[in-house]
């Protein structure tokens, strides 16, 4: 289980390969890659800056991953989230999960992403033709996270 918050870009293929390297028990690897779009809420976005709360961010992500591990039978998980200045087409976030079968990997990957969206202290600021603006949280993110409560195994 690894969590990384970094300014640098990452090599998607290398990260996924490393996550399952030498582990013949892994039958499924599910991953989600988030990217910077050039459009949000009707305005063009020329660049984005991601701020975070150093210390709490890592703790929050580790706690989300630990909860996923408790809910589903997964082998490993990786979360990489970039901070700082990003441009359209840039990679922002990677969540990857390995397990024996696809169902657990898909579910845990989506769960980690939904909880990250509502519980990890990151904030996006976008540059648009009308000036810079902080991105508003979406109600749809709250409802996506709420789907996972109560614990599906209970």
């Amino acid at each position: 289980m690894a969590v990384r918050v970094q300014e640098a870009d990452f090599d998607l293929g290398a990260e996924l390969t490393a996550l399952r390297a030498g582990q013949p028990r892994v039958g499924a690897l599910a991953s989600f890659l988030g990217l910077v779009r050039d459009m949000n809420e009707g305005a063009g976005v020329s660049e984005m800056t991601l701020e975070h709360y150093p210390g709490m961010t890592e703790k929050a992500l580790e706690s989300i991953v630990a909860e996923a591990k408790g809910r589903w039978d997964i082998y490993d998980a990786l979360v990489i989230h970039r901070v700082g200045r990003l441009l359209p087409c840039d990679q922002i976030v990677l969540v990857a999960v390995t397990s024996a079968h696809r169902g657990e990997a898909f579910a845990a990957c989506e769960f980690i992403m939904d909880y990250l969206k509502t519980r990890a202290p990151f904030w996006k600021r976008e540059a648009t033709p009308a000036g810079a603006r902080w991105v508003d949280a979406r109600d749809s993110d709250d409802s996506a996270a709420a789907r996972w409560e109560p614990n599906p195994k209970e």
Binding site: H81, F122, V135, D136, A137
Partner: peptide, 10 residues
């Protein structure tokens, strides 16, 4: 103690 707006990462 930290205060902040709703988070918007991901």
């Amino acid at each position: 103690v930290a205060f902040f707006p709703p988070v918007t990462g991901g």
